[in-house]
Computed example of a mutant assay.
Amino acid sequence: MMLSIGITTRFNQYNHLFRKIIQNRHNECKPTIWRDLRTHYIQLLELTKFIDSHISGVVLISASHNMLTVLLKCFFAFRPTRIDILDTIYFWFFVVFLITRTFLVLYLPAMINEAACRPLTYIRQIPQDKWNSDMDRLHDIISIEAPSIGFTGKQFFYITKGTILSMIGTIITFEIILLDEIEAHVEGLCASID
């Protein structure tokens, strides 16, 4: 989580500088400014890829563990096996804590991807007749590389906001299927007893 916050902060600093240059003086910018912005963006991309190459295994295990734990806890939430009020309070506190933790563990790396894509909107505000070769290269780098920038789970998936929504949809679908199976099993069990 801390690495995600750090990298997102660096991209946000870059975005702030980029926006400031565009708002203040994009008509009078020297080509060296765009070259510096391009090389700085490439360095941020390389830093993100370097860190991802070292922690992608941990991201995969963490995401898998969190998904499985959330699925199991949500499954047990619908089974009335808690005896006293303290057990119920503990269980629901743990479920809320677990869902919040899982969301933050996925949301913070997703912000890297969003911050990496933001310069594309800034550079598109500049009329193309004022572009130079470095601006064109920067636009190409951002449009090609930015959608796949961020942390991955061993390159199986990229953590983006879309991935988070897909995981939430998967959890909800899985829980609905499990609940239907449990109800069918209980009804079949009750019918065999009668």
Results as ranks from 00 to 15, higher is better:
residue 176 I to M: 01
residue 97 F to L: 12
residue 53 S to M: 00
residue 192 S to C: 15
residue 76 F to T: 06
residue 105 V to Q: 05
residue 157 F to C: 02
residue 126 I to M: 03
residue 59 V to W: 04
residue 125 Q to M: 08
residue 62 S to Q: 08
residue 113 N to I: 01
residue 78 F to I: 11
residue 71 L to K: 04
residue 2 M to P: 08
residue 6 G to M: 14
residue 136 D to C: 12
residue 180 D to K: 15
residue 124 R to P: 01
residue 190 C to E: 15
residue 79 R to P: 11
residue 11 F to R: 00
residue 89 I to W: 07
residue 1 M to F: 11
residue 101 R to Y: 09
residue 20 K to M: 04
residue 91 F to E: 02
residue 135 M to F: 05
residue 142 I to E: 00
residue 122 Y to H: 11
residue 62 S to G: 04
residue 59 V to M: 10
residue 32 T to H: 12
residue 117 C to L: 09
residue 33 I to V: 13
residue 62 S to N: 02
residue 77 A to R: 12
residue 72 L to F: 06
residue 173 T to M: 08
residue 36 D to F: 10
residue 31 P to M: 04
residue 173 T to E: 12
residue 17 L to E: 10
residue 12 N to V: 09
residue 102 T to F: 00
residue 62 S to A: 13
residue 171 I to C: 01
residue 15 N to P: 01
residue 93 F to W: 15
residue 9 T to A: 06
residue 126 I to Y: 02
residue 88 T to Q: 08
residue 23 Q to I: 01
residue 63 A to W: 14
residue 138 L to P: 04
residue 185 H to P: 12
residue 143 S to W: 03
residue 113 N to F: 02
residue 107 Y to C: 13
residue 173 T to F: 06
residue 91 F to H: 01
residue 15 N to W: 00
residue 82 R to I: 08
residue 134 D to T: 10
residue 193 I to F: 07
residue 146 A to R: 03
residue 19 R to D: 12
